[in-house]
Design a protein around this nucleic acid. Sequence first.
DNA 1: CGTCCGCTTGACTCAGATCAAACTTGGTGG
DNA 2: CCACCAAGTTTGATCTGAGTCAAGCGGACG
Lengths: 200, 200
Amino acid sequence: MQPAAPMTAPYAGAGMPVQRTLAAGEALFRSGDPVRQMFFVERGALRLQRNLADGRLVPMGRAAAGETVAEAALFSDCYHCDCVADIGGATVSGFARADVIAALHAAPGQGMALLRHLAAQVQGLRGRVALLSQHTAEARILAYLAQRADPATAVWPMDRTWKLVADEIGLTHEALYRALARLERAGHLVRRRRLVALCG
Amino acid sequence: MQPAAPMTAPYAGAGMPVQRTLAAGEALFRSGDPVRQMFFVERGALRLQRNLADGRLVPMGRAAAGETVAEAALFSDCYHCDCVADIGGATVSGFARADVIAALHAAPGQGMALLRHLAAQVQGLRGRVALLSQHTAEARILAYLAQRADPATAVWPMDRTWKLVADEIGLTHEALYRALARLERAGHLVRRRRLVALCG
DNA sequence: CGTCCGCTTGACTCAGATCAAACTTGGTGG
DNA sequence: CCACCAAGTTTGATCTGAGTCAAGCGGACG
């Protein structure tokens, strides 16, 4: 679950943007659609997800206002994920892909920012691959929490539902809740409201 | 399992390289080491892998002669993977990180090539995350093969051992072999020497 | 020729998927 | 303010698929 590009002036000088507003759940694009534009989120938020053959959804990321979506598609023919507006809907600005590429050529600094962002995504995804390679639910949960907890306090202020976490770490929500209860009973973590604290 | 950067003139103009030769299994760097140089593989090949708490290894990529390794670390303080020479050993050229970044600023074309490469890695890793999110061994294997089989012939010329594939898709080798046998018995695939063909 | 390692199969166990149901929470509308 | 609905959370019972331990086969390589 990588954050989208936190660029201060994304797509500056990349031609005239076209705005579009989406209702909650409405799709900005679907897997397989041809890539024509790059998007900047003006308001609200978008979810990136991949759908499995059995109908389940795998969350791949989220882009809030001020961020960009699907930078990884810049050089692709078609999208590999679905992108839908999160609850509350979203407004995006679309920039023609060719314009964005031209703007990157013209401004090396922006290219460097994007480079930095994609490099961070690669590392984040590798972390997630390692996490998913763990065989037990408890190991996955502890790895997940260790990744996000504040190193000093060992606390993670939850910014999502456990159900979503279950999808992120490849478990059913039942298996997740049970493993959480086990970990809490064993004293490895404490849940209090929207806070999770690691112990020992 | 992403291929490393296929740049024609990687790190051109990035200062004076320092060569180093590694024996098979010898480490170029380890997880946690500070990032000081970027490497170009002159001869042989390197493996990128992450180690789990229980001692298991998760393969993250491979870089053969003519490719670069660990481009994703360009902006990191320390490595997040181990990098060891593959069987046969390897010879690499190391370029100071600051020189590489300076060269990228000077030559936008190279930056674009790296951008393209990282974008492809992100998509590949997302595919792997989706694959690992599948719950059954058979679904993972079919997804794995579908990703690599030639679209026209539906055949994958194996370039690695099944044992390695098992680590890539998060299964024990026993579970992989059994699932393969089931799929073959059910007529979903055929193994012949080093070729795997998908059917139906 | 012997050793190493990838491959393969068997038997057993157990963790997690599945199906089911109840409770909590938050938000909407009357 | 409260009734109601949707979604997240939690627990139970059952079953199956993958992990684990174990053993045997075969090819590659020194």
